[in-house]
Design a protein around this nucleic acid. Structure first.
Length: 155
DNA sequence: GCCAACGTTGGC
DNA sequence: GCCAACGTTGGC
């Protein structure tokens, strides 16, 4: 099966690429959107992840990660104290899932959203067409463009 | 801080 | 099953 590619958003104030570099790997919990869940459930070990900083200055792709564990129930849904608690979920019938990702690399500079929007080859990215989806598929050509750009230091 | 785009909820 | 009202995301 060919490797697939994804973009996952995180607010750097909450969890940044630097946090992932320090931790090495993380559980991607807290996803509470059905389309994002479906995307996570399609992920396989080895799939590539663009780590995107949302609500950031500047917003953009900050580095790369890789799926190391496929979708399994997100424990925060059962935790009454959690912001992500879901009273409709039970361990027998979980409603939300997460994957584990491992740090791969941190770009010298963020590939910013304005540049992504200005790049004709990236015009069909979900990021550009549906800015709110937090876990989204990425085409190989889009992945290749952003990785190449991300490895080049600005100015 | 504003607000557009998008999702969810709930009355009917 | 429709859709108005409401809440959230996230860029600017």
């Amino acid at each position: 099966m060919a490797r697939r590619y994804w973009l996952m958003k995180s607010e750097p104030e909450v969890y940044s690429i630097d946090d992932l570099e320090r931790d090495g790997h993380t559980h991607w919990d807290g996803v509470r959107n059905p389309i994002a869940r479906k995307n996570m459930e399609s992920m396989e070990v080895g799939d590539g992840v663009l780590f995107y900083h949302s609500n950031a200055k500047p917003p953009g792709v900050a580095g790369l990660a890789r799926v190391v564990k496929e979708a399994y129930p997100d424990p925060t849904q059962f935790d009454k104290k959690s912001h992500y608690h879901d009273s409709r979920a039970t361990p027998e019938k979980p409603r939300w899932f997460m994957v584990d990702v491992e740090f791969d690399e941190r770009f010298p500079d963020v590939v910013g959203l304005p540049e992504i929007k200005d790049t004709p080859q990236l015009a069909d990215m979900v990021l550009v067409r549906n800015s709110r989806l937090s876990v989204q598929p990425v085409q190989k050509a889009e992945w290749d463009w952003i990785v190449k750009r991300g490895r080049t230091r600005n100015g």
